[in-house]
Simulated assay, not measured.
Amino acid sequence: MYLLEEMGEVMLMLAGALVAAILISWMSWTLFKLVRHPEWGPCLVLLGLMVTMWTRSSSSPFLQTTAFFTAVTAMICWGEGDAWRARRAAPPMAGSDTAS
């Protein structure tokens, strides 16, 4: 029974950390998309994570797991931010329908 409780706790911690990481990444993306620089969001999130992990090296496993998942999603969003700006800056193609 103890093993099932531990496994349940670990699974809930992983799920909660993943949800928290997704929300952190989405909020940073949305915030910096307003100023048309969404690629800055992951950089600042990674910087914040580094400072947090440096100052609180003995933090909880939940914070460490959230930091890991946030770092992974920030790296994914970093490249997408550059692509997003390139798509926004590119002029529309000739003959394309801009109404859709």
Score class of each variant (00 low, 15 high):
residue 19 V to G: 03
residue 3 L to V: 06
residue 56 R to W: 13
residue 62 F to R: 03
residue 45 V to S: 02
residue 26 W to M: 06
residue 56 R to H: 15
residue 100 S to I: 15
residue 51 V to H: 08
residue 76 I to N: 00
residue 66 T to L: 13
residue 61 P to I: 11
residue 98 T to A: 11
residue 51 V to A: 12
residue 13 M to G: 07
residue 12 L to W: 11
residue 32 F to T: 04
residue 36 R to K: 13
residue 14 L to D: 12
residue 5 E to I: 03
residue 3 L to R: 10
residue 48 G to P: 03
residue 59 S to K: 03
residue 51 V to P: 02
residue 56 R to D: 15
residue 19 V to H: 06
residue 86 A to F: 08
residue 72 V to K: 00
residue 50 M to G: 08
residue 77 C to V: 02
residue 45 V to D: 00
residue 97 D to F: 10
residue 69 F to N: 03
residue 29 W to T: 05
residue 58 S to G: 14
residue 37 H to L: 12
residue 2 Y to K: 05
residue 12 L to T: 06
residue 39 E to G: 00
residue 90 A to Y: 04
residue 32 F to H: 05
residue 86 A to P: 01
residue 33 K to P: 02
residue 71 A to G: 04
residue 3 L to N: 07
residue 36 R to E: 14
residue 61 P to Q: 12
residue 67 A to E: 01
residue 63 L to I: 08
residue 13 M to E: 15
residue 33 K to V: 11
residue 94 A to F: 13
residue 4 L to G: 04
residue 39 E to R: 00
residue 18 L to D: 07
residue 60 S to M: 13
residue 82 D to K: 15
residue 97 D to C: 11
residue 88 R to P: 01
residue 53 M to G: 02
residue 41 G to F: 07
residue 86 A to M: 10
residue 47 L to H: 05
residue 7 M to K: 15
residue 16 G to C: 10
residue 23 L to Q: 10
residue 47 L to G: 14
residue 4 L to V: 14
residue 85 R to Q: 10
residue 22 I to N: 01
residue 53 M to W: 04
residue 67 A to P: 01
residue 43 C to S: 09
residue 59 S to M: 15
residue 87 R to F: 09
residue 53 M to T: 03
residue 57 S to K: 06
residue 56 R to P: 02
residue 55 T to Y: 13
residue 13 M to L: 15
residue 76 I to S: 00
residue 96 S to V: 08
residue 61 P to L: 11
residue 81 G to T: 01
residue 52 T to C: 07
residue 81 G to H: 01
residue 15 A to W: 09
residue 19 V to K: 07
residue 13 M to A: 14
residue 7 M to D: 13
residue 24 I to C: 03
residue 27 M to H: 02
residue 1 M to L: 12
residue 4 L to A: 12
residue 82 D to C: 14
residue 79 G to Q: 04
residue 81 G to E: 02
residue 45 V to I: 07
residue 91 P to E: 15
residue 41 G to C: 08
residue 39 E to I: 00
residue 27 M to A: 12
residue 88 R to Q: 09
residue 83 A to N: 06
residue 82 D to P: 04
residue 94 A to Y: 08
residue 32 F to G: 03
residue 39 E to C: 00
residue 47 L to D: 09
residue 94 A to H: 07
residue 16 G to V: 11
residue 35 V to H: 06
residue 85 R to I: 11
residue 87 R to W: 15
residue 12 L to Q: 09
residue 53 M to H: 05
